[in-house]
Design a binder for these strands. Structure first.
Lengths: 251, 251
DNA sequence: CGGGCTCTTGATACGTGTCAATGTTGGTGG
DNA sequence: CCACCAACATTGACACGTATCAAGAGCCCG
């Protein structure tokens, strides 16, 4: 289901960007915001389950997520799919495609999403005009790398139930930091198919593993999604501790 | 076996850096080389099997590999180890530690290695003074990300024999591009333990899987390492094609 | 009202892990 | 120079975790 997403004129000014009000993002200088504002080209509204970027394409744009949940993935020729990571507000999408020749993975929306659109051709001027923002981009790339490292450790060396615990704890953590979850809204809008394709497990075994987590009182499954009851319990089971929260940049 | 590596005065000038003569690296301007030269602090000689960087440490340095093979890895509390990626000449090591607070993985040498040492505190001035080099760093980070994506796909969705084929084809490719392998020197200096910890398999099953590849005439195993006989055969078996070789930067 | 998704559950098959024993090689010290 | 030891590699038997197959229930949306 690939819906061609609509690209709209700017509705949210960078000067009053809702992300900047979140606790987890670093403050920006007036000058930086100004540059980003003129770097921004528009907004993209994507339906739930629509494809935002596809492997092999040469996109003229890159994006920052303003709202919604999505994920990056790759597929093998015979259709086997591996979800690589999830994207939440504040995350960049398509940076790889902007730097390398073409996208090496696809991106899909899990919920309706809003994305800021930037022009790929102006990327280099960002490095020239604002070294601090260039540094931020490298920082963001290094952070993505660190996350992928953890996923690799998880898929390679953890058992099914440990993997599932880690992943849900991870998603909970990211959702909280991105302002998508809080003490009242704890619902992660994900299907068991998504989890299976992230964990490297079959969907049947994923289902049975989630049931164990439900039975242990760590999570609830309802409304086509997951509600984390006991994040620390998940972390203990997985043997994972999230890095100390630290002010992060975004573009 | 953690040997404290020796740090020596500079013996290889950036102006006659041996890496720049390799086909796969992009040319640099005189000015850029000059900057890198004064960014460089010394050289590090690491013994085979010594640890170069350890998870949790705050290193004052970052490195570029000049010679030798090494790898990045993480371990769980109970000792389970996952190798994340390999490093060959031209690769940066420790960038994550330079950007984030501390290293989130360890790095170990598989053969004797030489590394250029750079000072972490001067990293930001690289972005200020040479936007092109800052761009290169982001490029390198995005490339590492793309590699990790492929590893995730492999561990998550390929069978044991497909995984092993992919990994050996990948190592062969990287070794060729880095000038560590050529038509006469085809020996990859790696143990089956390393492969097992990369593939997310037990060492016994790794051994049996490698035997199948030997029986198919795709590789040889000898001299504590692997000799790739038929790289295209490995690629076919894995369903993997290396990206077209493209001039890459390094610092 | 029907037809997809999504989720659930049991039975069975298969891939991979674990255990145990042995062979091989290279390095070290007497 | 030889003896010994520690990594590394190999192989078979068996156990266990996860995949696959199959059937059905619940739910949302057209």
């Amino acid at each position: 289901m690939t819906v061609e997403p609509r690209q709209n004129p700017i509705r949210v000014s960078c000067f009053e960007c809702p992300l900047r009000q979140l606790r987890s993002f670093r403050p920006f200088s007036e000058e930086e915001v100004e540059f980003v504002a003129q770097f921004k080209r528009g907004e993209l509204l994507a339906d739930a389950n629509s494809t935002i970027l596809v492997e092999g394409a040469r996109s003229a744009h890159l994006y920052t997520v303003l709202s919604g949940w999505g994920f990056r993935y790759k597929i093998l020729e015979d259709g086997r799919r591996q979800i690589l990571n999830y994207v939440v507000p504040g995350d960049m999408v398509g940076l790889q495609g902007a730097l390398m020749a073409e996208m090496q993975h696809s991106v899909e929306a899990m919920t309706p999403m809003t994305l800021c659109v930037f022009e790929r051709s102006k990327l280099f001027s960002l490095f020239e005009r604002h070294a601090g923002l260039g540094y931020d981009l490298t920082w963001l790339a290094a952070r993505e790398e660190a996350i992928l490292d953890e996923h690799l450790l998880s898929i390679g060396r953890r058992s099914a139930i440990e993997r599932a615990s880690y992943l849900l704890a991870f998603l909970f953590e990211r959702g909280m930091n991105a302002g998508m979850l809080d003490d009242t809204r704890r619902h992660i809008p994900i299907t068991q198919m998504h989890l299976a394709d992230t964990l490297g497990l079959s969907i049947v075994h994923t289902n049975k593993t989630l049931r164990k987590l439900v039975d242990r009182g760590l999570i609830l499954w309802r409304d086509r999604g997951c509600e984390v009851i006991n994040p620390e319990g998940l972390q203990d089971l997985a043997g994972w501790t999230p890095g100390e929260p630290r002010l992060r940049p975004f573009i």
